[in-house]
Amino acid sequence: MRFDIITVLPGLLESPFAHSILQRAQQKGLAEIHVHNLRDYAANKHKSVDDYPYGGGSGMVMQIAPFAACIEQLQSERTYDEVIYMSPDGQTLNQSTANALALKGNLLILCGHYKGIDQRIREIFVTKEISIGDYVVSGGELPAAILVDAVIRLIPGVLSDETSALSDSFQGELLDAPVYTRPANWRGHQVPDVLLSGNEAAIAHWRYEQALARTQERRPDLLDE
């Protein structure tokens, strides 16, 4: 997969993509992540990409021209399956969305900043808007990193144990069951006997029951859905 990310703060994205699973995915050639500095597409000498909002009000709005120039340049080089704008009023990111995006080839992600981006960019170019939750952060960079992480780990070959992603929370519309490792007994706190039994059917049943109970307790809305 290829991810192109447009941002005014490219340095903010250097660390998330340079470590752990995301770094290995790129080293294996399973994913490409390209970060583009929006200021490179500004036509003014100060490389500014924002201006005051029409109609007044607080904050600054990211201008249409730099975004359009960058998007059109990238679209002239390849076809994108989705042009995604990270926005607090977008569709809430969930595992189903990550699963669907993991089947795509090229994704273009727009990171807003300040008060947001000119609405015309959203109407003309954006095909999907995604939020990471009902709260506001300083820009779209960290949400974009979260989205890329959630998608890349689903690409076959990225995780050393591919079945791990299939058993994550939310994959079966349930939260994950509790997990344990050595030692079996730590200061009197014992790992459940069933996990030590070697009985795969009993273990699978226990994990399902635990996942169901945890979901009922913590996220009953998932069961309603």
Rank of each mutant, 00 (worst) to 15 (best):
R2H: 06
F3L: 07
I5H: 01
P10D: 10
L12I: 15
L13Q: 07
E14C: 11
S15V: 12
P16N: 10
F17S: 10
H19A: 14
S20D: 09
I21R: 06
L22Q: 06
Q23N: 11
R24M: 03
A25Y: 06
Q26M: 12
G29C: 01
L30Y: 08
L30D: 01
E32A: 12
V35F: 05
N37L: 00
A42C: 03
K45A: 14
H46N: 13
K47S: 02
D51M: 12
Y54G: 08
G56T: 08
M62N: 07
Q63D: 02
F67V: 01
A69E: 07
I71R: 01
I71T: 01
E72C: 07
E77D: 06
Y80T: 02
Y80L: 00
D81V: 00
D81Q: 00
D89M: 12
S96L: 05
A98M: 08
L101R: 03
G105R: 13
G105A: 10
I109W: 03
L110T: 00
C111T: 04
C111S: 04
K115T: 07
E123I: 02
V126P: 03
I130Y: 04
I130Q: 02
S131L: 01
Y135I: 12
Y135F: 13
V136N: 06
G140M: 05
E141I: 13
L142F: 11
P143L: 05
P143D: 07
D149I: 09
L154I: 10
V158L: 08
L159K: 10
L166C: 04
S169A: 15
F170W: 09
L174D: 12
A177V: 09
Y180L: 05
Y180K: 06
T181K: 13
R182L: 05
R182A: 07
P183C: 12
A184P: 05
D193H: 14
S197H: 01
N199M: 13
E200K: 15
A201D: 13
A201L: 11
R207H: 06
Q210H: 10
R214I: 15
R214T: 13
T215K: 02
R219W: 05
